[in-house]
Design a protein around this nucleic acid. Sequence first.
DNA 1: ATTCGTGTTTCAAA
DNA 2: GTTTGAAACACGAA
Length: 247
Amino acid sequence: MTRNLRDWLGEGPLSLELVDPRLLQGERPFDAQPVRRVFRRAKYCIVEREDDAWVLHFRMTGKVVLERPGGKLRARLLTSGTPVHFLDARCLGELRVLPRADLEAHLESKNLGPEPFPERQSAAWWSQQLQGLRGAIKPALMRQDRIAGLGNIAASEICFRAGVDPSKPVHQVQAWERIAHEAWSFLHHVVDQESGPEIHYVNEVGSTNPFQVYGREGEACPRCGAEIQRFVQSSRSTFACPRCQGT
DNA sequence: ATTCGTGTTTCAAA
DNA sequence: GTTTGAAACACGAA
């Protein structure tokens, strides 16, 4: 979505049409200012204008699209060309606007760990980033302050691809080499595959599930055919193959 | 008709 | 310091 936004916004003047006032926090960016930069940090998408910075978070159901097929419209990003629509079914997404000078401090305050993507990180790096955590590996992979950007789906998928039991305590994990490889491989695969004018979430009507275990409770494991299990860790659904991952 | 669960983060409490 | 649970929200499915 960040890449799309970069393409769609270009470098010309940008302003905001606010539809749902709850979306916006901070300043009210209704003037038009040229776009300087669009980039991603963890799950935040940042649009820098001449004087301010917009920090977008899509939470679980937010998205930006050019055409508006349906869904709850929360704002429009207005350029000299086609407007960009911020859709958000559950209305948990947010847009924070702050002076550009404050951006660095703002991101700093989030305590985000380093990025596992797009550069490939080593087994030692993964092991080191999660070092000292008491709990299970799957929730640990979602710790934004240790490694930024992995969410509930990625954590399940990476454990599956690496053949690691999501419940295994971090300190007992040996398969860091496989985790490092599969994490990178999954992220590239999913970004590649999900690229396009609109991101489709798994739960949306008419979308097909592109994942190997996530959302596939009761279905056959793509590798061994055993039934995929669902269970809860840290109040989030985990999906895993009991045979491949030894759960 | 309620309750549940939901690609997340943050804050309080254990 | 670390981990867990609830809340913010809307809505289809159970």
